[in-house]
Amino acid sequence: MTEAARPGGASRPPAIDGRDLSALTRQMKAMVPHYTPEWRFSPDDPDAGRRSFFWLRRCLARMPKG
């Protein structure tokens, strides 16, 4: 079915990010210095920011792959 032929004009779901968890972690480590230079993203030194990131990462991992 084409986009125009969908019943009720429903749009297609957005593309899901295909990166795995280790790729997301690498990107997070690379981005941190640019957004929060005072924060050190260190797996050996857990803090609230790191815990929040890993919680979100677990949530993303449980999403269905599409």
Rank of each mutant, 00 (worst) to 15 (best):
7 P>E: 04
24 L>N: 10
18 G>C: 12
31 M>V: 05
6 R>W: 12
24 L>S: 04
4 A>Y: 04
1 M>S: 10
25 T>P: 05
30 A>T: 05
26 R>I: 01
48 A>V: 05
31 M>T: 01
59 C>N: 05
53 F>A: 01
7 P>K: 13
9 G>F: 12
28 M>I: 01
44 D>N: 14
55 W>T: 00
30 A>Q: 11
42 S>M: 08
62 R>K: 10
26 R>W: 01
53 F>P: 00
61 A>E: 08
48 A>Q: 04
31 M>N: 06
50 R>P: 00
27 Q>W: 06
3 E>G: 11
60 L>S: 11
65 K>M: 05
32 V>D: 00
32 V>K: 01
40 R>P: 02
17 D>F: 00
41 F>K: 02
50 R>Q: 02
57 R>G: 03
30 A>R: 13
45 D>E: 06
10 A>S: 04
3 E>F: 00
25 T>C: 09
47 D>S: 13
9 G>W: 15
42 S>Q: 09
3 E>N: 15
56 L>N: 14
14 P>G: 03
27 Q>I: 12
27 Q>D: 14
63 M>E: 12
1 M>L: 07
42 S>E: 10
62 R>T: 03
58 R>A: 12
51 R>M: 13
50 R>L: 11
17 D>E: 08
11 S>E: 12
6 R>K: 10
34 H>Y: 05
35 Y>A: 10
57 R>Y: 03
49 G>I: 04
66 G>R: 11
44 D>K: 14
24 L>A: 10
56 L>M: 14
58 R>P: 00
45 D>G: 04
21 L>V: 13
62 R>F: 06
53 F>G: 00
27 Q>F: 15
6 R>F: 04
13 P>A: 07
5 A>Y: 01
15 A>S: 10
2 T>Q: 12
56 L>T: 12
19 R>F: 03
34 H>T: 08
16 I>G: 05
51 R>E: 09
